[in-house]
């Protein structure tokens, strides 16, 4: 069938755009990203969107699909098109550069802010590493989820708190903070605690749960945030 897609278009240098309607042949099995390719190849070569792996591991192609952030490559187009017009917009809580391309500058600034790297206590590798034994099963599970994060910014886009409070670092940066917060190898624990407790840190989260719903990799940012909050609470006792 021919699906109808209302897709946001914006010229570079401008701050507002509008939706344009495309009627695109939509076979069973086609992903929304493949619909974008078809638009670019057959209708308008200047149509801009990000892509790389088209296998949900690079995090390039997050957009808002019928108002909810998600990966275009991981979304089957036909079931959506059968229900009606498919509306596609760029991510929110970030400015738009062109069409579906969002400006990630603020996203990476929040990421950098939590100093997301292992601060080594020593400069050697660990020949034998048994610290995982010290982490509980729920932390091991959440750590594995944190590693899964592909930095697509779907969570930041749909976070209501970030919209209300732009200085809040957002769910992804909190996950990044979590990744090192409980890591026994890390030598910057005091910094992590301070960063989590700072006004725009993990404590700013109001538990809207959108981040958990939109995450294409089931990272569950809110769960990571809650683990940090619990730890902060136990310290203040």
């Amino acid at each position: 069938m021919k699906g109808r897609y209302d897709i946001y278009r914006q010229r570079p240098g401008e701050t507002r755009g509008s939706r344009q309607t495309f009627e695109i042949e939509t076979p069973a099995g086609a992903t929304l990203l493949e619909i974008f390719h078809a638009i670019q190849a057959d209708v308008d070569p200047s149509f801009a969107y990000r892509y790389s792996c088209r296998g949900a591991i690079c995090g390039s192609c997050a957009v808002r699909i019928n108002g909810v952030a998600g990966l275009a490559c991981k979304t089957q187009a036909l079931p959506l098109a059968e229900k009606g017009v498919v509306v596609v917009d760029p991510l929110t809580n970030l400015p738009t550069i062109k069409d579906l391309v969002a400006d990630f500058t603020a996203f990476w600034e929040a990421y950098d802010k939590v100093r997301p790297h292992l601060e080594r206590q020593h400069e050697q590798h660990d020949d034998r590493l048994t610290w995982r034994d010290k982490l509980s099963a729920k932390h091991l599970d959440q750590l594995s989820r944190a590693v899964d994060c592909i930095k697509c910014a779907a969570c930041l886009s749909d976070c209501p708190k970030r919209k209300l409070m732009p200085e809040y670092i957002g769910p992804q940066a909190c996950v990044q903070l979590y990744k090192f917060y409980f890591d026994p190898r890390d030598a910057a624990h005091d910094f992590r605690v301070a960063e989590a407790a700072a006004p725009g840190g993990a404590v700013a989260c109001d538990s809207y749960t959108n981040c958990v719903k939109v995450c294409p990799k089931d990272v569950r940012p809110l769960r990571a945030i809650n683990f940090i909050k619990q730890d902060l609470a136990s310290r203040s006792k």
């Binding site: 660990d126 034998r128 590693v147």
Partner: peptide, 19 residues
């Protein structure tokens, strides 16, 4: 190369004895 990435913080899977 494995040791270098371990030093940089990579979460390699480990055996029960830590290897």
């Amino acid at each position: 190369a494995i040791y270098t990435f371990d030093r940089w913080g990579a979460h390699f899977d480990r055996n029960p004895d830590g290897t």
